[in-house]
Lab assay of single mutants.
Amino acid sequence: RRVTVRKADAGGLGISIKGGRENKMPILISKIFKGLAADQTEALFVGDAILSVNGEDLSSATHDEAVQALKKTGKEVVLEVKYMK
């Protein structure tokens, strides 16, 4: 599913991630910080795999590559996510 997140002037997306190619895992949302941008969408969940950020494929990204992709986003971020059981 596709989720658009609008960041506030102060603060980032409000998520922590884990996983990555070096761990043989997808990039997973490991924490959502209450009240910040990702939480306010009410459409992102701990355990979601982030498949892409603004069209940039993260399916084979390392953890560091995913962190950089998320950091360089502007005010509006489009995440392609899939819930992983």
Rank of each mutant, 00 (worst) to 15 (best):
I15H: 03
L13G: 01
A37I: 05
A10D: 14
K85Q: 14
I32W: 01
G19E: 03
V53T: 03
K18E: 15
K7M: 13
A10N: 13
G55C: 03
G11H: 12
V53L: 07
D39E: 09
S16I: 12
G19T: 01
G19V: 03
T41A: 10
K71V: 09
V67E: 11
N54F: 01
R1E: 02
I27P: 03
K24E: 10
S60P: 01
D39P: 02
D9K: 12
K18H: 12
K34T: 11
T62D: 04
D48A: 03
A43K: 13
P26K: 00
S60H: 15
H63A: 10
Y83D: 15
K72F: 10
L70G: 02
L28K: 06
Q40K: 15
L36G: 15
K82C: 11
A38I: 08
E65F: 06
T4I: 14
K85N: 12
G14E: 01
A66N: 07
M84D: 13
R6G: 06
I27S: 00
G14L: 01
L36D: 12
S16Y: 08
G74Q: 08
M25H: 06
A66Q: 04
E56L: 12
D64C: 09
K82P: 05
V77K: 05
T4D: 05
S30L: 04
K71L: 10
V46L: 04
K85E: 14
I50Y: 02
E65P: 01
N54Q: 06
I17Y: 00
I17F: 05
I32P: 04
I50M: 05
G12K: 10
Q68E: 14
I50R: 01
G12V: 10
F33H: 15
I17D: 01
L28V: 15
E22M: 04
V46I: 10
G12S: 11
Y83T: 15
G19P: 00
R21Y: 10
L70P: 05
R1W: 01
A37F: 03
L13S: 03
K72E: 11
L70W: 00
I32C: 07
E80V: 10
A10G: 14
V81P: 03
L51H: 07
D64L: 09
F45D: 08
K72R: 14
S30A: 12
K71F: 09
F33I: 12
T4W: 10
K72T: 11
V5R: 01
L58N: 01
R1A: 01
A66R: 00
I29S: 02
G12E: 15
V3F: 03
I50T: 04
A10F: 14
G20L: 00
R1P: 05
D48T: 00
K31R: 11
G47Y: 06
G12Y: 08
L70H: 04
V77R: 06
K24A: 10
E80L: 07
G55P: 01
G12D: 14
M25N: 10
A61C: 09
K34E: 10
V5C: 10
K75N: 12
K18T: 15
I32F: 01
L70M: 09
K34W: 01
D64P: 07
R21F: 11
F45R: 14
E56I: 13
I50N: 06
A43T: 07
R1F: 05
G55I: 01
S59F: 03
V53C: 10
D48W: 04
G11D: 13
T62I: 06
G11K: 12
D48H: 00
K85F: 15
R21H: 08
A43Q: 15
D64Y: 11
G20C: 02
P26T: 03
R1D: 02
S16W: 09
A43E: 12
I29P: 05
V77C: 14
R21W: 07
G47I: 00
Q40V: 08
R1S: 04
L58M: 13
G20R: 02
G55T: 03
T4L: 13
E65Y: 06
I17M: 05
I27R: 01
Y83N: 13
T4A: 07
R6P: 08
Y83S: 15
L58V: 09
G47N: 13
M25A: 10
V53W: 01
D9Y: 13
K24T: 06
F45C: 13
S16P: 04
L36R: 12
K31F: 02
V3W: 00
R1H: 06
E80F: 06
E22F: 04
L28A: 07
E65A: 06
G74Y: 02
E42K: 15
T73G: 13
G19N: 01
I50C: 05
K72C: 12
K7H: 12
I32V: 10
V77P: 05
S52T: 09
I32A: 02
K18D: 09
A66H: 05
G19S: 02
V77N: 05
L36W: 10
I15C: 05
D64H: 12
G35H: 07
K7W: 08
Y83L: 10
G19Q: 03
D64V: 09
V81Q: 06
R6V: 14
I27K: 00
S30I: 03
E22C: 05
L13H: 02
G14A: 05
K71M: 12
I32L: 07
K18F: 10
S30R: 06
V46M: 06
V81D: 02
A10S: 14
R2I: 13
E56M: 12
T4M: 12
Y83K: 15
L28S: 08
G55N: 07
S59K: 12
M84R: 08
G12R: 09
A10Y: 11
V53F: 02
M84K: 09
G19C: 01
Q68N: 12
G14T: 02
T73L: 08
F33P: 08
R1G: 00
G35T: 07
V5E: 01
L51G: 04
N54C: 02
K34D: 10
I50W: 02
D64Q: 13
S59R: 15
G47V: 03
T73K: 07
K82Y: 06
L36A: 15
S59W: 07
K75S: 13
N54L: 01
E65L: 03
V67N: 08
L28I: 15
T62N: 07
P26D: 01
S16Q: 15
F33R: 12
S16A: 15
G55W: 00
F33C: 14
V67S: 09
K82W: 01
T62R: 06
A66G: 07
R1I: 03
E42R: 14
E65C: 03
I29L: 02
E22N: 07
K7A: 11
G35M: 01
E56N: 15
H63P: 01
I50V: 07
K71N: 15
E56A: 11
K31I: 00
G55D: 08
G11T: 14
I15W: 01
K18S: 15
P26N: 07
L51K: 07
T62M: 02
Y83G: 15
E65Q: 10
H63T: 12
L70I: 08
L28C: 10
